[in-house]
């Protein structure tokens, strides 16, 4: 089955991004497809490559980047939510005249249409948030 996932709460503050991670791993292990994970609201903060959690803690961004790479998951960060919260890729940083970008490998910034499209193209949609 194709399962779409939405993460709508920030990392570390809330368990949502962790629960979603374990859920997606389990879904893949059972042979399901997870074609896309969509990050919305404060969930976009998972995508920053500038977070430096203590060494003995899980690194939520790295976990997602690795999982997505291994299984070809399309990780989409909502552009409107990302811009509000200071998440920029190279193109956006340049377009907005900012001096840095911070999107980690494996994530891409795109529109909310990708969320709707995921709802249309998957068999199930599961949201993790607050």
């Amino acid at each position: 089955m194709k399962i779409g996932v939405v993460i709508s709460e920030g990392p570390y503050t809330h368990q949502a991004a962790d629960t979603a991670y374990h859920f997606v791993k389990a879904a893949l292990a059972k042979g399901h497809e997870v074609p896309r994970v969509f990050f919305y609201h404060d969930g976009v903060n998972v995508a920053t490559r500038l977070s430096v959690p203590p060494q003995d803690e899980r690194n939520i961004q790295k976990n997602w980047t690795e999982l997505a790479k291994e299984h070809g998951i399309d990780m989409v960060v909502c552009i409107a939510a990302a811009q509000r919260r200071g998440l920029l890729d190279e193109n956006e940083a340049e377009r907005q005249g900012k001096d840095a970008n911070n999107i980690a490998e494996g994530f891409r910034i795109s529109g909310l249409g990708q969320l709707i499209e995921m709802g249309i193209q998957t068999d199930r949609l599961v949201m993790f948030g607050d």
Partner: peptide
């Protein structure tokens, strides 16, 4: 507010 933004974008998909 961010829910409303999804609704507005989603309207273009004719669901």
């Amino acid at each position: 507010l961010e829910s409303l933004e999804v609704v507005l974008i989603g309207a273009a998909f004719e669901q």
